[in-house]
Design a protein around this nucleic acid. Structure first.
Length: 267
DNA sequence: AACGGAACCTGAAAGC
DNA sequence: TGCTTTCAGGTTCCGT
């Protein structure tokens, strides 16, 4: 269930593994990852991967024939690097075998819930083109955040998770950042003060960088990975004391997603 | 137009 | 023990 930091780690890994490599084999299973736009696996063979980019939660791999691979990890997608003769992974949905500097490797896309996407297209997808400010790619400060929010009146938590406003912020990053900025998640987005815009922009960077530091590595770890302790400051910590003021953190549901907040700090 | 709720999937964990 | 319910960090669609 990746948000910006997990997708950023994936992009960095894919640059190491795939940039400059040539696709020598492609196996794309019949499943809903390619829903709406079936991919001709054979057409990928012989193509070189020129670059790997990320915006928000999307990955874009530019090929040498002017097409692009768009990959979204949905709720449970991951890209792994394996040997070409390694066995198929559990929930493996597709694979790209690469040759790079005379060495072969195999990229496996694993996604048990299949909310992810894999699209090959000449033109950018609308979902890519309409993405809002990416905190890492574009930078984000109080002024640009305020401009992106505009006069939206929905709650600030829902607006933050709108990918056309700030790209890459999901339920965890929104929850963590709002706590850091001491803003109640239900606050109407249009009612934030300039001071709060600045605090929230800084809090988003803080949360993303903090999560990135936790997750840098060859394979993404998620909170729910067996045995992994919850590394977040407030997300999933309802019932525990607020790290700032010791008030018991509470969980509410907002826009259908669970949200944790401190009733004292985020008044 | 805006909003809540359900749907799309699978599986782990909690509840009974 | 084993069956049932709940929940999950994403996105989209549908009815009000």
């Amino acid at each position: 269930m990746p948000e910006l930091p997990e997708v950023e780690v994936t992009a960095r890994n894919l640059r190491k593994w795939a940039r400059g490599g040539t696709i020598v084999g492609a196996t794309i299973g019949k499943n809903r990852i390619t829903r709406g736009s079936p991919v001709d696996a054979k057409s990928l063979v012989g193509r070189r991967i020129e670059s790997v980019e990320r915006r928000g939660k999307w990955l874009r791999l530019v090929l040498d024939d002017d097409r692009k691979i768009f990959s979204h990890l949905g709720m449970s997608g991951r890209w792994l690097q394996r040997d070409v003769d390694a066995p198929e992974e559990r929930s493996e949905r597709l694979r790209l075998d690469l040759e790079r500097r005379g060495r072969q490797s195999s990229l496996r896309y694993v996604d048990h819930r299949m909310f992810g996407r894999f699209v090959v297209a000449k033109d950018d997808l609308d979902e890519w083109s309409t993405l809002g400010i990416d905190p890492l790619v574009d930078g984000l400060d109080g002024r640009t955040l305020a401009a992106a929010i505009g006069d939206r009146k929905r709650t600030i938590k829902e607006v933050l998770m709108d990918q056309t406003v700030v790209a890459g912020v999901g339920n965890i990053q929104a929850t963590e950042a709002l706590w850091r900025a001491r803003i109640h998640p239900k606050t109407s987005a249009a009612k934030l003060t300039p001071k709060q815009h600045g605090a929230l922009a800084r809090a988003i960077h803080w949360s993303i960088e903090r999560t990135l530091g936790l997750e840098e590595g060859p394979e993404i770890t998620y909170v729910e990975d067996a045995g992994a302790p919850n590394p977040f400051v407030v997300y999933g910590q309802d019932g525990e004391p607020c790290p700032r003021c010791r008030t018991t953190l509470v969980r509410i549901v907002l826009g259908g997603r669970s949200t944790v907040l401190c009733p004292t700090c985020q008044a």
